[in-house]
C-alpha cells in the first residue's frame, strides 16, 4: 500500500497522538484536528485519502461533520470511531455518510487494515472487475470459476465469496471481523476461531500441493492473499 494521507478528527489528545504516531510508523502521513469544526475545515481544504472521525466531538459532532462534507460533495472515505459499539449506532453512522465503523477500543492493526481498504477503494473506483488474478490463481466472478496454474478448483459458494473478498483486497491485510462483516454480513464478535477454520479449509483447497503459498496469515492482524514469489 503506497503511503496515505490521513486526517484524524479526535478530541482525545492522547488517543490522537497515538494514532498519528502509529500511522507514521506504518509509512503513512496523518494530520490531526482536535474538534469537529477544525476537522471539517481541514477536510474541506486538504486532499486526504481517508478521514478518521470520532463520533463525539466538541463544537461539531462527528456525524454532522460527515453530513456536511457529503453535502459539499466531498466524498473522501470516512471511518467512524466511536465508543458506542451497538448495532444501531453503527447503522446511524453509516447512514450519515460514513463508510466504515469501528468501536473503541480497537486494535490498531484492525484500524490500519480498514483504513487501507478504504483508501484503496478510492483509488480504484472506476471500472468493474470481474476477474481477479494473484500469482497463478485466477478467479472469474461471472463464470464462478477458480483455477490455479490452469487447474480448476471447486469451492463451496461461501468459500468462493471468501476468496473473492480476499483477492479483491490482494496485498492488503483483511481482518477476521472484516471477513465476518463482508462475507457473512454479521457484525458481532464470534468469540472463537470460526473464521480461522474457514480460512484453513480454503487454504487447503488453494495452496495445498503448490510450492508458493498465496493465502498468508498476518500475525496479530488477519489474513492476506499475496503472490509470495514477487
Amino acid at each position: 500500500m503506497p503511503d496515505m494521507r490521513l486526517l484524524i478528527i479526535e478530541d482525545d489528545r492522547d488517543a490522537a497522538n497515538y494514532l498519528v504516531k502509529a500511522f507514521r510508523e506504518s509509512g503513512h502521513s496523518a494530520d490531526h484536528a482536535a474538534d469537529g469544526l477544525a476537522g471539517y475545515e481541514r477536510a474541506c481544504e486538504g486532499d486526504y485519502d481517508v478521514l478518521i472521525v470520532d463520533r463525539m466531538l466538541p463544537r461539531m459532532d462527528g456525524l454532522t461533520v460527515i453530513g456536511g462534507l457529503r453535502q459539499q460533495k466531498i466524498d473522501t472515505p470516512v471511518l467512524i470511531l466511536s465508543a458506542l459499539g451497538q448495532v444501531d449506532d453503527r447503522v446511524k453512522g453509516l447512514r450519515a455518510g460514513g463508510d466504515d465503523y469501528l468501536a473503541k477500543p480497537y486494535a490498531f492493526s484492525e484500524l490500519l487494515a480498514r483504513v487501507e481498504v478504504l483508501a484503496r477503494r478510492r483509488g480504484s473506483s472506476s471500472g468493474e472487475t470481474t476477474h481477479y488474478r494473484v500469482g497463478d490463481l485466477e478467479l472469474d466472478r461471472l463464470a464462478h470459476k477458480l483455477t490455479r496454474a490452469g487447474k480448476e478448483i471447486v469451492l463451496q459458494p461461501r468459500e468462493f465469496r471468501l476468496l473473492e473478498y480476499l483477492m479483491k483486497h490482494a496485498g492488503q491485510v483483511v481482518t477476521r471481523t472484516m471477513l465476518l462483516e463482508n462475507v457473512w454480513d454479521y457484525h458481532f464478535d464470534p468469540q472463537t476461531n470460526v473464521i480461522d477454520v474457514h480460512i484453513s479449509r480454503l487454504r487447503s483447497k488453494i495452496d495445498k500441493g503448490f510450492d508458493v503459498p498465496l493465502l498468508h496469515t498476518i500475525r496479530g492482524a488477519g489474513y492476506m492473499v499475496r503472490d509470495g514469489s514477487r
Binding site: 453509516l94 447512514r95 455518510g97 460514513g98 463508510d99 466504515d100 465503523y101 480498514r114 481498504v117 478504504l118 477503494r121 480504484s124 473506483s125 472506476s126 471500472g127 468493474e128 472487475t129 470481474t130 466472478r141 473478498y165 479483491k168 483486497h169 462483516e181 463482508n182
Partner: peptide, 8 residues
Amino acid sequence: PHDDATPR
C-alpha cells in the same frame, strides 16, 4: 464490485 468494504 467497487462498492465493497462495509455497505452503507
